Amino acid sequence: MSEAASPGLTAVVPAAGIGSRMGASCPKQYLPLAGKTILEHTLDALLSHSAIAQVIVALAPHDTWFETLSVARDPRILRVQGGAERAYSVLNALHVTTGPWVLVHDAARPCLTHGDLDELIAAAMASGGAILGSRVRDTMKRTDGAGNIVATVDRDGLWHALTPQMFPTGTLKRALEEGLALGALITDEASAMERAGFTVKMVEGRADNIKVTRPEDLSLAELFLQQQSARQQARPD
Rank of each mutant, 00 (worst) to 15 (best):
A4G: 04
G8E: 04
T10Q: 07
V12H: 02
A15D: 07
P27S: 14
P27D: 14
K28H: 14
L31F: 10
E40G: 03
S50K: 05
A53V: 01
A53G: 08
V57F: 15
A60D: 01
H62G: 11
F66R: 06
S70P: 00
R73H: 04
D74N: 09
R76P: 00
R76S: 01
R79W: 04
G83I: 01
G83C: 02
A84V: 12
R86D: 08
A87C: 10
Y88M: 10
V96M: 02
G99D: 02
W101V: 02
L103Q: 02
D106Y: 04
D106S: 07
A108G: 13
R109Q: 11
C111R: 01
T113S: 12
G115C: 03
E119N: 14
L120V: 00
I121V: 00
A123G: 11
G133R: 08
R142W: 13
T143L: 12
D144M: 14
V150L: 13
A151R: 09
D154E: 13
L158C: 12
P168C: 03
E177D: 06
E178G: 13
E178R: 09
G179Q: 00
E194C: 02
G197C: 01
G197A: 13
F198C: 12
T199E: 12
K201S: 15
V203N: 00
G205F: 14
G205P: 08
R206H: 08
R206N: 01
L223R: 09
L225Y: 03
S229V: 05
Q232G: 13
D237N: 15
